[in-house]
Design a protein around this nucleic acid. Structure first.
Lengths: 168, 168
DNA sequence: GCTGATAATCTCAACGTTGAAATAAAAACA
DNA sequence: TGTTTTTATTTCAACGTTGAGATTATCAGC
């Protein structure tokens, strides 16, 4: 008994008793929203301390983990990052100017553009990644490994039920 | 075995085997980020279908659940909503123009401004709330009530460990 | 009462994203 | 082959938030 969402739920139960039986989704959705904002702030600050923007970090890690030749089309990046195509174009514009990625036009299909991680982009990503993971581990410091695994299972089930497959 | 985050983790393990033992935070943090974005999109669309903006919905529900006299200071709204003071000023400006809230200068301390829910704002909020809860219940449809409770407990523990008390 | 420090809100330019329209290329069909 | 539809990316104005600074009011110590 005691995070902000518990307070929110009891406030509603007090103010509108007729809603009490319908408040149960808030314990999950409300907390997911709060955690989402908290994590965004935290990771944004961590990225900024390394001279990176959150969206850039997103693109860098997506390209790096895709493996050789470290290329993805703009469309693949859109699906992977859950933002619109305009945002991806914008990110790539900035990152190309910084020398982190380069655009490579596809020979077979000249509509598609592949975004390729540069040597420099890869170095920065790998240097960043282990610290990034350590930072995430710190954020989860209040939970045991077993609790993390259990929480992860619950979140996975919810994501799966929402149709969050890898690249649909 | 099968949401997008499972794929991300196995991609990293393949591309950078030396990171494998440090990837465990991703199963929680990665999923929280994806769910956060998913929920944001979903709730934003639902709010828009009722002529409301997400930030406005946030202010309306915060004021309503605070109970009579349905007033909070700008500072209290900042803490409750996890956005900056500029965003709150901006939201209240718009909502005041729409007649959803009204600014009331505090008599005792003339620095503070209370944001009061209008009659119209309250009506809209209450009409919206039960549908909003039904929508959240729909989003959680893939989980049983027991699973929701368990997931909620895990999320609460994480929030508490991050210091997310009601109004600190 | 002054004075300096603290607090609450507002202002505003910069930023990244959205969403719809535009462009351009490929595929499907006649 | 020519035409239509679909697909991939880019463009761009509008939008809400951020973050720092400005403003105004209160408080603490003298």
């Amino acid at each position: 008994m005691g995070d902000a969402v518990d307070v929110i739920i009891s406030q509603w139960a007090e103010e509108r008793p007729e809603l009490e039986d319908d408040l149960w989704p808030v314990q999950v959705v409300g907390r997911l929203q709060r955690l989402g904002r908290y994590l965004e702030r935290e990771i944004k600050a961590f990225a900024a301390s390394h001279g990176l923007e959150m969206g850039e970090l997103d693109v860098l890690t997506t390209l790096q983990r895709s493996g050789p030749p470290y290329e993805l089309t703009a469309g693949q990046l859109v699906k992977a990052s859950m933002v619109t195509s305009g945002a991806i174009t914008n990110r790539i514009d900035r990152m190309e100017a910084k020398g982190l990625v380069e655009r490579v036009r596809d020979e077979g299909d000249r509509r598609t553009v592949r975004m390729r991680l540069t040597e420099r982009g890869s170095e920065i990503t790998l240097a960043f990644m282990s610290e990034h993971l350590a930072n995430e581990a710190r954020i989860l410091g209040g939970l045991s490994r077993a609790e993390c695994a259990q929480l992860g299972d619950g979140l996975r089930k919810l994501l799966e039920s929402l149709g969050d497959t890898s690249m649909s």
